[in-house]
Design a protein around this nucleic acid. Sequence first.
DNA 1: ATAGCTTACCCACTATTACCCATAATATAT
DNA 2: ATATATTATGGGTAATAGTGGGTAAGCTAT
Lengths: 154, 154
Amino acid sequence: MTINQDTFTGEFSFTIDAKGRVNIPAKFRQSLAPENDQTFVITRGMDPCIWVYPLTAWQIIEDDLKDLSAISGINRSFIRNTVRYASSVTFDKQGRIMLSTNLLEYSHLKKDALIIGMVNKIEIWDPSILAKVDQQNLKMDSSEYDELADKIIL
Amino acid sequence: MTINQDTFTGEFSFTIDAKGRVNIPAKFRQSLAPENDQTFVITRGMDPCIWVYPLTAWQIIEDDLKDLSAISGINRSFIRNTVRYASSVTFDKQGRIMLSTNLLEYSHLKKDALIIGMVNKIEIWDPSILAKVDQQNLKMDSSEYDELADKIIL
DNA sequence: ATAGCTTACCCACTATTACCCATAATATAT
DNA sequence: ATATATTATGGGTAATAGTGGGTAAGCTAT
């Protein structure tokens, strides 16, 4: 069965060990295209979570960043803040990646991690933080949410 | 593991020792293409920080400068100010480079250094200076920043 | 030339990381 | 069901990374 390469769906619970390692769900590892050399790029999400990109997807972002002129200060700030927290990680023989303390603190992750497929990327959340953020978004923009559902859900 | 050569991402904290040496993060040293002969070119950044180029990337800049006509005074000034503060540095067996007092003063670096991958170059910042500059840029042009994010982030 | 300073090269220590093996639980196959 | 493979998790250890410092060679200026 050939699952769509580099697309991720579903939710998985994992534990972060004392060394800061988490397992990437086997399903996600298998749908990672071979060109990625078993490596992801992890970085800060726009929400307080960790974003995980297939290497090749991240390289597209990098290529776009290279095209931005360095003359503009705002461009430089944007490149810095986009790239700053990103690091490429290859998973070990057990399928785990290492998370930096920086990213762990940013996402408030401690022991339990919720790993969620977001189609073209993966998110790693602390369960309680996710609940809070989602609840807040829905409270603020529930009508917008419904419009989206109306447009997209079959 | 074949990471993109001569591209740098991520943030690293280092200390500048009494002799003015800083370590180049191992990850950056490894992604430096062999043609560079373990040497970078360091110079003043457009922000108050140090810019670090792979040698071959800097040589492209020099080639472009050669093509500028020397008839024009503005050309001569541009060439002068671009090249003036640049010097090539090879890292030692421990992976460190030496920073000139000139560059240290320009970037207000004292003991702590934040080394940031900027895709095709590297920046060395004093942490407190970086915070100030970034904050100022974002305050001034936050809408421009959001536009960039919308265009580039996957 | 020589004193004084700077630079390049060498060695040493410590903490972190990468790599390996082990186990328990789950899934797959015969 | 029983055997076999695959997952998720824990932990040990050797290699590496980052940091500090010593010393000899090279410059600079008198």
